[in-house]
Design a protein around this nucleic acid. Structure first.
Lengths: 203, 203, 203, 203
DNA sequence: CACTAAGCGAGACGGTACGTCTAGTCTTGGC
DNA sequence: GCCAAGACTAGACGTACCGTCTCGCTTAGTG
């Protein structure tokens, strides 16, 4: 995440504790204030750190929040519930639970909005959040194929396209349900959604 | 001491032209600057209007941008292409085209992000954007039922649930594809998505 | 100051009343808010008059306040207490009492300050306030000469110079005592001041 | 995380140059614009300083102008011209010369006007301007006593009262002559005034 | 084991935008 | 035609953050 001194460079090393304190303070501030009222000065104060220290490590609010939010999604896991449908339902519910957290809601959409005009930020989001969770789709398909619920993919190109489509559909639907429609993505809704998705994919 | 206004009639009326100029200037500024660098002072200047005039009509940046962006979606129409699949593909492509506009991209996600902490704003978005476009789903279903592609809905409650689910899935997938995955929602993608959706819905 | 309503036509009943109401409202606002926080909009509201009406009659805050304050000084009178010293003490005490009013304090010095850069305003102050009260000095001298306390003035030019000097010394000392030193110009102080003044003038 | 600051030592120190630049810019702006059109933003720009820097050091326009004007009076000196009358004439002429400066005229009366409603400001004026110049009266009396022109003061209480009275009379008369009557306090006038004053004081 | 380069907390700095306020003008409709 | 009501342009207000820049100090590694 940060440069570990590129070799045996001289000088005082950066405090590792500071990084963690800053990211935690960022999430705390997101909960209390939301994206637009979050200020880096306030984050620094909460973390017990000077503003300079914060700017030495992150270029700005956007990058900081991406990192703070990305950590939240790392705890997602594909549960083994015995069937593809049940596995999907499980992971979608986990995803919905994270999105229901105020620190995720407030921060995620805001950085996505910023990313519409900032290629580097878009890349950072993709690397820190999107691609890291696409593994779940891949694992799910592999497990379903092992179970015989899905046939092996003959064409790797179209296989990748399908992964992207599924990811857009799952993440998009949950996000839209949660943030725009502002209705909970609860078990009943997830069941209905999963049914449509799997039937649509031809299983 | 003259007339006591019979019912809010007295005084110079608000300029109707100003409203249109302000919303147009807002979209122009969104294109050039994006959400985060858009300032109300700049919008006022572009619109040839004083800042006070702007604040007299809108409470802040959020409300202004919701109105400015909402107008973009009013041009959506359900085309009659002869089949349900073709109709959906048509309207989804229109939706994707609007979302590809920088003024929509920049503004929409940002206000959604703000809305996570602002119930009134969420309601405004729902009223100005979401509910106004839900008509497309309803029209599409009615037309498909007239054509005999879909059976009439027996239970109105579950019918409403299905409309909501479809809306979340369509809007969510297109938004996620466009803004998060940052890939174009082109004809090929729309065809694939529509196939999965319709097959999932059991038609 | 304003036109009287021509009797035959459908009426303008408020013209004359408005002037008085506005000047009274101005003094009231001076008391409550002081010069710097007094606004013409507020004065208009207090007077039950539209801002337009106010601007039709006065060019701005300065002119309005000069007129409002000038009225206060019109009640000054030279009392006949039997001796020059007693007459002076009496009128100086009256002057001090007016200057102790918040509406006079706040307004007078402020317009004098403005007048340092505005010849027309300076002239208006001179006409409305200074010259109108210089009569007191003239009357006092005439009365003292009638009493034989002062010799008749041989040279009218030097007589005018003396009047001006006395006026500057009296008004200046009372104003400075009241506003800058912020001590009351009470009977004891006035007695001391008058003694020095008269002795200085060689009586 | 690091050093506990020993006692208000930490942080970047305030720029000493900024203070001088701001006060000079204030006087410059007073000359060009006068009190009422002077804006703190403009002063900051002239001083090559950010508005925040200005507000960090002064509470507002009033306090700033008091300090800016007070410096003007610091150059007053009691000249030694050999006699009490000549000394007084000398210092009054100096005082009149300063009051003739547009930056003094514009600013001084305005802050005095403001001070009528602001005890703290009145105190600041007294401390920065009035009391600092009262020394001139004290020095003048001491010198005159040394010369034998004045008897030693037996009662310190009445001595203080006399100093205050003299100060009010001198400052008041010059200010009134200069700002209200708007006539120059030239040598001739000063000579006449001084004669009356000294004769009044019984010398 | 002293040097020294980078890190650190604190807080002042030049900027920019905020949302509010007031000035002075203009535009309605009612009397 | 004059009035009250109130919208209009213009621009200053004082505040809040931004991201940068001193300060005086701390802290490892290396020389």
């Amino acid at each position: 995440m940060q440069t570990r001194s590129p070799a045996g460079r001289a000088g005082r090393p950066r405090s590792a504790a500071a990084d963690a304190a800053i990211l935690a303070a960022t999430r705390e501030a997101l909960v209390e204030l939301g994206w637009s009222k979050l200020t880096l000065g306030d984050v620094a104060t909460r973390a017990g750190v000077a503003k300079t220290t914060l700017y030495r490590r992150w270029a700005g609010k956007n990058e900081l929040v991406v990192d703070a939010v990305a950590e939240l999604f790392d705890e997602l896991e594909l549960p083994d519930r015995g069937s593809l449908a049940a596995d999907i339902e499980g992971v979608v519910l986990q995803f919905a639970a994270i999105l229901a957290l105020p620190e995720a809601k407030s921060g995620l959409m805001a950085v996505v909005a910023e990313a519409t005009r900032d290629e580097a930020l878009r890349e950072r989001i993709r690397a820190s959040v999107v691609d890291r969770q696409k593994r779940l789709v891949l694992e799910g398909r592999a497990r379903a194929q092992a179970r015989g619920e899905l046939p092996p993919e003959p064409d790797p190109r179209s296989a990748a396209r399908t992964v992207d489509l599924i990811f857009d559909m799952v993440a998009g639907a949950v996000v839209h349900r949660t943030l725009v429609s502002a209705e909970p993505a609860d078990e009943e809704w997830v069941r209905g959604f999963t049914r449509v998705l799997l039937q649509g994919l031809g299983t």
